[in-house]
């Protein structure tokens, strides 16, 4: 008998704590790995300031959209805009996705500092990665084979690079070397004379040379006004117009503190 009472008490307190926990865990974020750092920093800041627990999952932009449509997250973080098919699926389920831009991210094309090439067109870069241009001579450089460096297939940066430059459904040449992080791409490019690679804007430093795409260098200004062609906005997607805590979270990029965090992480404020 006493055991049963004890069990009951335990169960009751468990249920109570679970419901209490649910009340505190107001925000669930899911989606892009690229937006991950921003989302996590915001989450830590938000928890500290408002005492609200925020969980952040990084399962990819597509999964973020899926989670929002299925109602398993409050905010979907995405490094691309929602596709038509996703919007249609959302409408069917009675979900109304509303986008708000978190920050901008420019992908810098980088080469060895000793490489004389200063600028490439988007078409040239695409040809280099498709393997149709294989020598720097063909794009106004010295007579040397191009060492093409890309990221692993699980990289969000790789995905957006493919989408923005190479073109969807086009295969990158098998000759391309694959590196597992922004850091190792930088290390390879900075030590290989005839290499070309791409880095998130926040990772660029003096060990590599950034080349202009279509004559435009990625700077805060050119990414901001959209003239730099290899940049993309990063999004928070909510179901309907955000309100309350969700609105406060989504509006963080507009506050001075939020802007500071975004800049520190190497992203560009809108």
């Amino acid at each position: 008998m006493i055991k049963k009472i004890l069990l009951f008490v335990v169960l009751l307190s468990l249920t109570l704590s679970v419901t209490a926990g649910a009340a505190v865990t107001a925000l669930v974020l899911d989606g892009s790995t690229t937006v991950g750092p921003v989302a996590k920093t915001f989450a830590a800041y938000f928890t500290k300031k408002y005492g609200v627990r925020v969980t952040v999952s990084e399962s990819g932009s597509g999964n973020g959209a899926k989670s929002l449509i299925n109602g398993s997250c409050t905010i979907a973080t995405m490094s691309r805009a929602m596709k038509e098919a996703e919007l249609a699926a959302a409408r069917q389920k009675g979900v109304n996705p509303v986008a708000s831009v978190v920050a901008l991210d420019g992908l810098a094309m980088v080469v060895h500092p000793a490489n004389p090439v200063r600028s490439l067109t988007k078409a040239q870069i695409s040809s280099i990665y498709r393997g149709t241009i294989t020598n720097w001579r063909e794009v106004g450089g010295p007579n040397a084979s191009i060492v093409v460096i890309q990221r692993e297939s699980n990289s969000g940066t790789e995905e957006s690079f493919k989408e923005l430059v190479v073109g969807k459904g086009v295969q990158i040449t098998g000759r391309a070397e694959t590196q597992s992080s922004n850091g190792s791409v930088k290390s390879r490019v900075s030590s290989t004379l005839s290499a070309i690679g791409f880095l998130g804007h926040g990772f660029v430093d003096r060990s590599v040379k950034v080349i202009a795409v279509n004559g435009i260098l990625p700077t805060v200004a050119t990414v901001k006004n959209g003239t730099y062609p290899v940049s993309r906005p990063l999004y928070f997607y909510t179901n309907g117009q955000p309100a309350g805590l969700v609105k406060q979270f989504v509006d963080l990029p507009k506050t001075a503190e939020g802007k500071r965090m975004i800049t520190e992480l190497g992203f560009i404020n809108r």
């Binding site: 000759r175 070397e177 694959t178």
Partner: peptide
């Protein structure tokens, strides 16, 4: 090999 082979499937 992951770090130093270049990882290009050719």
């Amino acid at each position: 090999v992951w770090m130093a082979s270049g990882n290009s499937s050719q």
